[in-house]
């Protein structure tokens, strides 16, 4: 893509974004609704930033990110390890398959009550729910990757004296990487959705808590700020993960 085309696309995107914001601003200013309930974006965000101290804001973001990273890393790691082991060693796969299939259709948020019963209201319950949200997409995709490898690649490896774990680590795992990467991205997105919900329902800190608390204070501006922050955090982290994946896999695999 040439630079001029990129600029044109960016300009068009900017125009579209500004149009939406302008529409919102206009509807809020002249639409007749109370600015307390439906504030224009300008006053909502600015007002909220005045009301919520910066360090409090940073504190909420930090604790949220901490939870999501902990849960995601645990879920993704276990997902990859179990899927690769189960996809490669048939007996293990046979044993874990029905259990996973049984648990997979359950939405991760449904575990919130049980997470509270098992782990209390502390950090572990939130991390556990995020862990579940990350685990299943990573597991499913990694499984698909390992079991769906083109057999000719495995045979080629065998003719080059690779057997057992060497074949797994040198051929099967790299070949499954694109699918694993897909699973990681889906898992990350899902973790974000789940994080907010977990914090809405059972937390006294984090971005989800911040907006739920703002509702009780009828502070719509802070709610809007929080929503935008959560969206931005998701967008930025997803983009970063995508960039890392592109760097690692983009050289040989169309991402």
């Amino acid at each position: 893509m040439s630079a001029s085309v990129r600029w044109r696309d960016a300009a068009l995107g900017g125009i579209g974004t500004l149009a939406v914001l302008a529409l919102w601003e206009a509807a809020a200013r002249w639409g007749g609704a109370s600015p307390l309930v439906f504030p224009p974006p300008s006053t909502a965000v600015v007002g909220a930033l005045e009301r919520v101290p910066g360090d409090v804001l940073v504190g909420h973001v930090t604790i949220s990110l901490q939870r999501i990273v902990l849960g995601f890393v645990a879920g993704a790691t276990l997902g990859v390890v179990l899927a690769v082991a189960g996809g490669w060693y048939r007996i293990l796969g046979n044993l874990m398959r029905p259990i996973v299939e049984l648990l997979r259709p359950i939405p991760p948020l449904a575990w919130i009550p049980m997470a509270i019963v098992w782990f209390g209201l502390g950090e572990s319950s939130k991390v556990f729910v995020i862990f579940l949200a990350a685990f299943f997409p990573v597991f499913t995709n990694a499984w698909k990757g390992v079991t769906g490898i083109d057999p000719v690649l495995l045979r080629a490896g065998q003719t080059m004296d690779l057997t057992g774990p060497a074949l797994l680590f040198k051929v099967a795992l790299p070949a499954a990487m694109p699918d694993i990467a897909t699973g990681l991205r889906i898992g990350w997105g899902l973790s974000f959705g789940v994080l907010v919900a977990a914090e809405l329902i059972a937390a006294d800190s984090g971005m989800g808590y911040m907006i739920m608390n703002a509702r009780q204070l009828a502070d719509v501006g802070t709610i809007i700020l929080g929503i935008l922050m959560i969206g931005a955090a998701n967008l930025v982290t997803d983009w970063a993960i995508g960039a890392v994946i592109r760097r690692r896999l983009g050289t040989w695999h169309p991402v």
């Binding site: 083109d150 000719v152 690649l153 045979r155 080629a156 051929v171 790299p174 070949a175 990487m177 896999l249 040989w252 695999h253």
Partner: peptide, 8 residues
């Protein structure tokens, strides 16, 4: 078939 390792 193409049996080269695509990641190398």
């Amino acid at each position: 078939q193409q049996a080269l390792f695509p990641w190398l």
